[in-house]
Design a protein around this nucleic acid. Sequence first.
DNA 1: TTTTTTTTCTGACACTTGTCATTGTTGTTT
DNA 2: AAACAACAATGACAAGTGTCAGAAAAAAAA
Lengths: 235, 235
Amino acid sequence: MALINVSCDDCPIHRKSIFKGIDESDMLDLNIKKTCFFYRRGQVIYYEGKGALGIYCVYQGKIKVFKLGSEGKEQIVRVALPGELLGLRSMISGKPYAASATALDDSVCCFINKRKFFQLTLKYPELSQRIMLTLSFLLEGAENKITSLAQKSVRERVAETLLALDETFRPDHSNDGTVISLSREDLANLVGTATETLIRLLSEFKHDQLIEIRGRKIKVLNKKALLKIGKAFPA
Amino acid sequence: MALINVSCDDCPIHRKSIFKGIDESDMLDLNIKKTCFFYRRGQVIYYEGKGALGIYCVYQGKIKVFKLGSEGKEQIVRVALPGELLGLRSMISGKPYAASATALDDSVCCFINKRKFFQLTLKYPELSQRIMLTLSFLLEGAENKITSLAQKSVRERVAETLLALDETFRPDHSNDGTVISLSREDLANLVGTATETLIRLLSEFKHDQLIEIRGRKIKVLNKKALLKIGKAFPA
DNA sequence: TTTTTTTTCTGACACTTGTCATTGTTGTTT
DNA sequence: AAACAACAATGACAAGTGTCAGAAAAAAAA
């Protein structure tokens, strides 16, 4: 982890982030007050159990947010991409982080102080509104995941997860060429299964030409078939 | 379902609900504008997929909030008790309900119009704050449930769920005498397992004197042992 | 009450999934 | 480049869990 300097002006997403619509002057101030960090793959942004002093805004890269189960196994709760916030819930509740966050790729995250953030919410009511929307969105995703974990087979969940990742990791507006690059262990921890089981199912999907595997890179070839296996509705 | 008239003054929880701190006059107005419904056990408050016109505030009873899986099986996402809100997320996001809600006991819920509600949030910023807290709380619960479903055995989850219900259903300040009264099917749908499996585990726990079963009523006898089985941390 | 329906419970069995052990492969370091 | 470490893949096996079928018990209706 190292300090780095990136400007909100260059931020690829700030016009789409929850900060859109903020005055020029406040944006400049935010730009100065924030602290940006560069994280190499595998490095930790924050640990479960630690106190939250503010939020992180993902500027670049991919961040996995996970909880540790009673046996020490990671359960990935979500993967955060540029423009998304980390630690929102803990900042709001004032309680310690309920999950840890580490970088899946080399990443940059900007830290925004709690006080600064709450100042902005006071000035911009639409910011509060957008936070509620963000939380609602996360909650909906979490409840879908609960239903999936409780009722679907691992096979179904793997198909579902591959499709979701294919969608999430897709570069803007590109129609093809999405490549999922995660360790098998991370993928398994996202699906909620043992690494070996995940690998077996990937092999099966590969054999059936539903996906293409090159090292740790996975490419979805047959969405329709995966949709059917995952018993999911088309996005 | 039938119209009924209950007053916020008599509301057993309004001093603890998110509406605490609202002016007398606004409270009176809310009291008039709200619509209260009485639901007999099993009756529906709202259906997944329908549009949300406002929120419901639980006044009395127990409400199960559930999603339907791809095979039509219910997954209970949470059980809402007096003072809690139903449909908050859909009202905020403006999207259709992502879950259905039905009464587990004879219950009373008060409906508050979307417009009225947003009026109040504009006047009382602390209300927005409390909504965010509520959403954060729900999200934390959901993420814990994800980890539990992904990593724990059914046996562990049954123990965990029994303890959680014992806590949730406990009458205020009473130290003993909590009785869980749910159908086996609902319990199974809460735990995320087949009804038969749940019943077998209940029989086992009963045999080991961890719980007492009288019809559909379950009483926790040995919390410590259940905690150990559930690999949970003491509340 | 008696009858009917619903719910709970038990048994048998198959199959999905996790665990352990081993080998092959990829990528990193010296 | 060789040596090493990390990761990916496969096999064998046991245990947990879901499904189906049917009996017992409880609740609801007549």
